[in-house]
Write a protein that binds this DNA or RNA. Structure first.
Length: 252
DNA sequence: CGCTTTTGACCCGCGC
DNA sequence: GCGCGGGTCAAAAGCG
């Protein structure tokens, strides 16, 4: 994990293999080759940046964990979590690897959390991630004045994936989306996918992320949860699929 | 007309 | 057993 010394041969454009090259002028092929090489360079740069961002994020998470554990030792009396809330958080952490003991009817094998920076003027709680969602409920929770919206995947009727979306307490411009389960169907077509870059930015800026992670810490979430979230995101196939989608969208 | 959203009611687990 | 809080259901309304 965090290994940024990898290489991808992006010049192997499958489309080119299917073309009868004898029908294409050499000049056109040369131009195409140059264009693809330039794109390859750009993608390599993007991947490098992505890896650097990831590494800096991971480093910061470790720093926050150390800071948090120190803080805990100094002032345990300030932790006023109820037993129920603690149990919920432990349950949440365990859910990264196994089903929730509280709800044995549901098999939630994969839970991931995504934070999305939105336009402050945008009051909707919509996180665009390429899937179709149907809202089935909304609740105002005790510790957050912003309503929490509940969504089910509507792309396939049997898809068990659910999503919860709620604005951050400290920064209402940040949407926190929690995904439960795995899609049992392929991702909708590329044309339907709207990458979250219009009025919505997945947080990659270390400064903004620092602030958000500090918010999470002040909310007394366990350090283990943060570690698990980072680990889960890096292993999450949908996260990898999203990156692959972005790359293929640039290529074609 | 069919799909989505809204929203109050209901269910269920947990703590006291 | 009761109350609380989170999650889900389902009827009604909205929308294209």
């Amino acid at each position: 994990m965090g290994n940024k010394t990898f290489s991808i041969d992006l010049n192997t454009n499958p489309l080119l293999h299917n073309i009868n090259r004898s029908l294409i002028p050499h000049e056109t092929l040369d131009e195409e080759l140059i264009r693809i090489r330039e794109e390859n360079k750009k993608l390599a740069t993007m991947l490098t940046t992505l890896c650097e961002n990831y590494n800096s994020l991971q480093t910061h998470i470790i720093e926050l964990q150390q800071k948090y554990s120190t803080h805990n030792e100094e002032d345990n009396s300030k932790l006023l979590l109820s037993r129920k809330r603690k149990a919920e958080e432990e349950c949440c952490v365990n859910n990264f690897e196994e089903a929730s003991p509280k709800r044995p009817r549901e098999i939630t094998t994969n839970i991931s959390t995504v934070c999305v920076k939105t336009n402050p003027s945008d009051q909707t709680s919509v996180v665009k991630d390429g899937y179709n969602w149907r809202k089935y409920g909304q609740k105002v929770t005790r510790d957050n004045p912003s309503p929490r919206a509940y969504y089910k995947c509507s792309f396939a009727p049997t898809c068990p994936v659910k999503k919860k979306v709620q604005r951050s307490v400290k920064d209402p411009s940040i949407l926190v989306a929690t995904y439960e389960g795995e899609h049992n169907h392929p991702q909708p077509s590329q044309a339907e996918i709207k990458m979250p870059l219009v009025n919505q930015d997945v947080i990659t800026d270390p400064k903004i992320l620092n602030k958000f992670m500090e918010d999470i810490n002040t909310n007394s979430l366990q350090q283990h949860l943060v570690e698990k979230m980072a680990s889960s995101l890096s292993k999450n196939p949908s996260f990898a699929a999203t990156v692959a989608t972005a790359i293929s969208g640039l290529l074609f």
